[in-house]
Design a protein around this nucleic acid. Sequence first.
DNA 1: TACGATACGGACCAGCGGTCCGCTTTTTCC
DNA 2: GGAAAAAGCGGACCGCTGGTCCGTATCGTA
Lengths: 195, 195
Amino acid sequence: MPEPRKPRKDAARNRAAVFAAADALFADCRSPEEVTMADIAAAAGVGKGTLFRAFGDRTGLIRALFEARLEPLGNAIEEGPPPLGPATPPPQRVPALLDALLCFKLDNRHLAQALEGTGADSPYRTEHYERWHTLLRDLLRRVPAPADSDFTAHALLAATRADLVAYLADEKGARREELRGQLAKFTAAVLGGTM
Amino acid sequence: MPEPRKPRKDAARNRAAVFAAADALFADCRSPEEVTMADIAAAAGVGKGTLFRAFGDRTGLIRALFEARLEPLGNAIEEGPPPLGPATPPPQRVPALLDALLCFKLDNRHLAQALEGTGADSPYRTEHYERWHTLLRDLLRRVPAPADSDFTAHALLAATRADLVAYLADEKGARREELRGQLAKFTAAVLGGTM
DNA sequence: TACGATACGGACCAGCGGTCCGCTTTTTCC
DNA sequence: GGAAAAAGCGGACCGCTGGTCCGTATCGTA
């Protein structure tokens, strides 16, 4: 691992400014598509070239931002205390993970929608989805479930898709606790049957 | 209902030509985004203006094509024989509907992906999704399920999202019967618990 | 056949993601 | 501290896409 040399001071500052600007813009607009790269650059006070050099393309920027926001949750899962951390027995951990994921998507629904709607490359080919799926699948294998663990993991994750969550919350007026309860019940049905 | 006057002969012919051309183009290309309106117009042997006059915009064209392809299935559900038709008791009809939907999305995955990935307007705000959801929800209410019928209907439909299906089939190499079996088992788990 | 209504089609436009390269800032080294 | 080199900056610029427009060709009708 050849220590990639620390970035310059202004580069770091700009990166943070871009994150903040993009976050705000995505939060405000109804559809992620109406936030253009030029908008983000302007709001962050940088040039468009800077955006593309730092993140490659639009998808790269969204992905980087998403990962950054997701990092705390990722840490809590990898090395945190129960019920998210690795010490939790699977039957409790699976619902906890899904609940945390739902909450995250609720809180960051605009960003998550931007990520999942990048179009060309489906949300499934990302390394980030792979992580969640593998984690969930392995946990499901350790709880005697009636259905195939691999597919079940996909199906459970599909229930927390950003556009579905946003639709239920924004169009249908579903409340946060309501959604959490529904997802919990659904998960329980999938897992145990008897609840 | 003011009988909307029958369309001109050439208009009807062009409409069919556009459908055929679009279908073929979507089937061939990897990502629906790389099929442009100009491509479709050229392949159908019509001008671009004709496309937009007939369908409004890109989304309208995709939607019209999708609905057209879905019509046979829709009829089978509304007035066909069991297990899809209305005479079927809910516990058998729900899995049958989901299976039929999965098969349809498998057969028309490119088109379905184009539809769901139109970006701006989420797939959920369409009248077509509303139909499926309502039908499924009402059926679920008539079978004593442990979880909320409304949410469960959304979750089950999410398991057949076009990009997920395409991902499993194309990237993961899942076979058709394999997927059908997995969805059936998953559905059974959600419905009955005991299977 | 002649005429009005309807539909055609391709030149045209605005706006997007993405590139490029001359210029500025930062770091490095003596 | 200063100069040279490296790293980064930014906005003019490009190709392409969805979408518009209107003169022209075609269809239905009498």
